[in-house]
Design a protein around this nucleic acid. Structure first.
Lengths: 140, 140
DNA sequence: TCGCGATGCATAACATAGGTATGTTATGTT
DNA sequence: AACATAACATACCTATGTTATGCATCGCGA
């Protein structure tokens, strides 16, 4: 049976790998998170992005500044609340996301092709379980 | 069947989680990698550590400096080549590693307890496969 | 509706971790 | 001996994060 320790060791290795592989667009992990959130949910406030990404609000303001300069994000006025700033992803931002994902998927596809069919099946079977596991952690 | 894209999306989520959970000792991911490598392999040269961790040699010199100040690492002279500096982990360094792993294992154990037995089994079955998958990437 | 605390964001000042460029010392090679 | 190479260290820049603070706007109770 899988203990937290087994899982921890296995994930440690996987995480190191994913970190190395995900370098397209040359953006930070936090920036990738922000782009991903905006791609999935549409516009968000700076404060909400900060909370979601787990950084301070000023850090998010600065990140949004940098990504806006790179034209990966855009600021939009919130007509309902003029204190707020809505942030949205641009087409260029979507492209960066897509490139990153494609790159990573390519590496993983190549790797999947090199392991046994049994291993592929085991991994495929575990993905929904892993997803629920992560949700279980996030809920607690 | 699991595509690289499916896997990529699932791992993205897991990576974010692991990053958040691993905060013991307050050290950077690179520092954690260095400690882990030294714990597993014994002494290493600064240049080799830099290559393994995927950072530049000066960055590794500075990281070793910081970790040495925190007494998590120690420098040892290389009698065979006096240009070189051998770096080794200290007992305090091992403790930090152990604390981090225990912390993460604890979180994951709690999470495992909250998903179904089927999910636990699926995850347990996939761990060796994931390990081989990572090795397949690293070989290429 | 007036005032006033709460909210949302920006700015300032600073810390940390990474990078490149370059210097110093030791080793190998003609 | 003279030069090339290798292994670290140093100097300085950028990216990314923090806390403290300022400013505009909003919502709401007297």
């Amino acid at each position: 049976m899988a203990s937290g320790r087994d899982l921890s060791l296995a994930l440690e290795k996987v995480v190191r790998l994913v970190r190395e592989v995900s370098t397209a667009g040359d953006i930070s992990p936090t920036a990738a998170t922000v782009l991903g959130v905006l791609a999935r949910t549409g516009t968000q406030r700076v404060t909400d992005l900060a909370r979601i990404a787990g950084v301070s609000q000023p850090a998010m303001t600065q990140l949004v500044n940098r990504l806006t300069q790179q034209e990966l994000l855009a600021r939009v006025a919130d007509d309902a609340d003029r204190r707020a700033v809505l942030v949205e992803i641009t087409d260029a931002g979507r492209e960066v996301l897509e490139t990153r994902r494609g790159q990573r998927a390519g590496v993983l596809d190549a790797a999947l092709a090199r392991v046994s069919a049994e291993d592929r099946a085991a991994i495929a079977a575990a993905l929904p379980a892993l997803d629920r596991l992560v949700d279980a952690v996030l809920d607690s």
